[in-house]
């Protein structure tokens, strides 16, 4: 479904991604593992169209996405749940969810979709008329994921969903990620907490200095001595 070939990208004079090739097939859960500054978030930003690649290709169903704006990428069925939640703080949870279905295609059946998503996240339903900014960090993360699901995406990308959350909340967030996976949505996830993500991932890529250095199934990577040494500190 999604394929990256020899992707290069960076910020101004700094090249972050040297050569990134990876693919995500329908129904998979793919994770990108890597150290700080290895280029994980940059990869997601490039896929979303938030960052213009300087080389290589990104294709969705074989179609080159070069030059497409973030809204056009959303149209292709790719949605990102950004790092740090990024809700609209002075709007209600309901309005946040409605904005998740902003594109005309999603807006057409917004009420049905709202029911489907709320069925998946019952705790969000209790908060519908509350201001998003008044929720706790964990609840905000839930709303952010629900908002991403509102677009009925074919591919949902998570950028560090557990960052800055307390351990107890991290556990709840992962339960929700599991629920999204179970609902059949294709997932690409970037996460520091690699033990959990590699357990649920069908495949994983290891990114170092902007290059893919290794790829395998999730559980296999978890057992790999290099991964263990570099990312688990054991």
């Amino acid at each position: 479904m999604l394929r990256l070939e020899g992707l290069r990208a960076g910020y101004g004079p700094v090249t972050v991604l040297q050569d990134v090739s990876l693919e995500v097939n329908a129904g998979e859960v793919v994770t990108i593992v890597g150290g700080n500054g290895a280029g994980k978030t940059t990869t997601l930003r490039a896929i979303c169209g938030l960052l213009r690649p300087t080389g290589g290709r990104i294709t969705v169903d074989g179609r080159d996405t070069a030059g497409l704006s973030p809204p056009a990428i959303v149209d292709l069925g790719i949605t990102m749940v950004p790092e740090g939640r990024q809700l609209f703080p002075f709007m209600t949870v309901r309005e946040n969810l409605m904005l998740g279905a902003y594109k005309p295609a999603a807006r057409a059946r917004i009420d049905e979709r709202m029911e489907e998503v709320l069925a998946l996240f019952p705790r969000v339903r209790e908060r519908l008329s509350q201001m998003a900014g008044s929720l706790s960090g964990g609840e905000q993360q839930m709303v952010a994921i629900a908002r991403g699901m509102m677009a009925n995406p074919r591919l949902l990308m998570f950028d560090e969903p557990s960052l800055g959350l307390a351990p107890l909340i991290v556990k709840q967030v992962f339960e929700i990620v599991d629920r999204v996976v179970a609902s059949g949505t294709t997932v690409l996830i970037v996460e520091q907490n690699i033990v959990h993500t590699l357990q649920i991932a069908t495949r994983g890529y290891v990114l170092e200095n902007g290059q893919v250095v290794m790829s395998d199934t999730g559980p296999a990577l978890l057992k790999d001595p290099h991964v263990k040494r570099a990312y688990l500190g054991v």
């Binding site: 979303c48 809204p71 709007m91 409605m98 908002r147």
Partner: peptide, 23 residues
Amino acid sequence: THLGRAIRAVAQNRYAAPLMGID
């Protein structure tokens, strides 16, 4: 309105709005 809501969304979070498909 949807457009009005999108306008407020942009004001509240410039970074997240494009991820919703808002230009």
